[in-house]
Design a binder for these strands. Structure first.
Lengths: 125, 125
DNA sequence: CTAAAACCTGACGCCAGCGTCAGAGGCAAG
DNA sequence: CTTGCCTCTGACGCTGGCGTCAGGTTTTAG
């Protein structure tokens, strides 16, 4: 392995990123459009991503599942990247955390409700 | 209190239902349109609801929060009302339950991720 | 060399749970 | 009576995360 080989990042195209992350190509393009991803371009204009982009996309999916919007995630990215935050960002992080926690509690309550219904319908066949 | 007074249901108009349940008037009309609520009508055409409608609307909100669609809720209503279900409905109930449980797990994972980020940003001020 | 597969840029479509505006009627109080 | 709030029926708008089609270029496999 030469120095230049070690220095050169291995870049992958959009299809590989999408497949490895388990999302559609369209989704990846969308993330870029929303400022969540930045891609280099090949001379012919094709997007080239660093391989750890897959990890990032999986992170996005997780945040989407938690109800964060792409805008919020974009605001969070600096924290994630640099590990450096100002007071406002930290407040936002905690706010999102609390929102998710509240959502978990809501879901748990809904779950309990459904379990009640299930219990009733099982004893009343 | 006379017999007729005891027998007569107290009916409320849409505004009261909405306010007591903490939703908009528009939302209540929407629920009716989706077959979740049935209203009597006054001679002039105004909707009249039984007072326990408020409970029902709160239940809807809980289910919406859990990610159920109004269609699903409409399919669940017979179980809820009569306490009587066929096999298909019981299967649906369990499927929804499992879906919600999975969602709770996802959210918990996202929460843990965010907590990691928060921990890092707190130690890296 | 050629055909298939992958990629590109728009741009419109979709769903669900409402928000919101328009225009008109009902209803208790002063 | 009229003022002011509540209600009615449409009907269009919005948001977000993509799906999907159109029409063209590029890369890759054989």
């Amino acid at each position: 392995m030469t120095v230049t080989e070690a220095a050169a990042e291995r870049l992958v195209r959009i299809g590989e990123v999408a497949r490895d992350a388990g999302v559609s190509v369209r989704a990846v393009r969308y993330y870029e459009q929303q400022g969540l991803l930045i891609a280099e371009r090949s001379p012919s204009g094709q997007r080239l991503y660093r391989q750890d982009t897959v990890t990032l996309v999986r992170f996005f999916q997780q945040m989407f599942a938690a109800g964060l919007t792409s805008r919020r995630i974009a605001e969070l990215l600096p924290c994630w990247d640099t590990g450096h935050t100002d007071a406002e960002q930290r407040a936002m992080l905690r706010a999102e955390r609390d929102r998710i926690q509240a959502k978990v509690d809501d879901l748990q309550a809904a779950l309990d409700r459904l379990d009640e219904v299930i219990a009733i319908t099982d004893t009343h066949p």
